[in-house]
């Protein structure tokens, strides 16, 4: 019993230390944002890499998500013959909730994990120390460009992915529920989901921010060679997933409270 408590206590302290470390890292990143002296080349490279790495997986995921939401809503809706509801139901859940979350999770698996691996490798092979010896601040040079790129790109990817999710939903409603494309589109437009769309975009940017912070933090703190890099990637995606769901809940609550 005492042993179990000791183990649990150690685990809790470990988690609190981790949260503290990530919070501190977040503040350091914000501090490095001013004055705005970003390395244009590295920032551009980060944008390019983040975009190229993730857009296929995001678009595919989004289309499947839209389709799955229509299938799930389909059963209930067919039973109650309320087919005019499909556009609203699918549009609402996809735009405000499941779209940004699934896109965020995929983005974290693709871009976040890759970023941790890249930075971790740079730490293990002393490339980060080499930057420091050239009097270049790794926070400024490596973390800030990735931070900016991930926020902007996840915003754009959610904006784009939402449209593909609706497309996937429209195709599925047409095939399964026999609702024509024009009817589906007019249903989505009638549902007036601009609020939800904007909410989803805000969530996307916040997810991008948390993925950037978490993946850079785990990358910079890698210890112990190649196995260390693997472990860090594992921890990074896990922490990002928790971050995404926690932010989703918080934004939902704040949004409700404000309205």
């Amino acid at each position: 019993m005492t042993q179990m408590l000791t183990v649990m206590g150690a685990r809790i302290i470990e988690i609190l230390q981790l949260i503290g470390g990530i919070a501190l890292f977040f503040l350091r990143t914000l501090r490095a944002l001013v004055p705005p002296k970003y390395d244009a080349r590295e920032t551009w490279r980060a944008f390019y890499k983040v975009g190229v790495q993730s857009y296929t997986i995001v678009i595919l995921t989004a289309m499947f998500t839209g389709a799955i939401m229509v299938i799930q809503a389909g059963g209930t809706i067919q039973a109650s013959r309320a087919t005019s509801f499909v556009g609203w139901a699918a549009g609402f859940t996809v735009l405000s909730e499941i779209g940004p979350v699934l896109i965020g999770l995929m983005f974290s698996g693709r871009v976040g994990a890759n970023n941790t691996a890249e930075l971790g490798t740079m730490v293990v092979t002393e490339q980060v120390d080499a930057l420091r010896t050239l009097a270049i601040d790794p926070m400024n040079y490596l973390a800030v460009p990735r931070f900016i790129a991930m926020i902007v790109m996840l915003f754009l990817l959610v904006a784009l992915g939402d449209l593909f999710a609706l497309l996937g939903g429209a195709i599925t409603s047409h095939v399964m529920l026999d609702i024509s494309y024009s009817v589906f589109v007019s249903q989505v437009i009638d549902a007036q989901l601009l609020d939800e769309y904007i909410l989803g975009l805000i969530k996307g940017s916040l997810f991008g921010m948390s993925i950037a912070i978490v993946s850079c933090y785990f990358g910079f703190t890698v210890r112990g060679g190649a196995p260390g890099v693997g472990r860090a990637v594992n921890n990074s995606v896990v922490a990002s997933a928790i971050g995404i769901l926690a932010i989703d809940l918080l934004v939902g609550i704040i949004h409700h409270a404000v309205r």
Partner: peptide, 28 residues
């Protein structure tokens, strides 16, 4: 800036061409 270091494993930046490696401190 006064004391440079050459690492044991050279530690060039993998993601950059050789000239970009040399150019980096100049640019910064």
């Amino acid at each position: 800036m006064k004391c440079a270091m050459v690492f044991q494993h050279s530690t060039l930046f993998d993601s950059m061409s050789l000239i970009d490696n040399v150019k980096l401190p100049l640019r910064k």
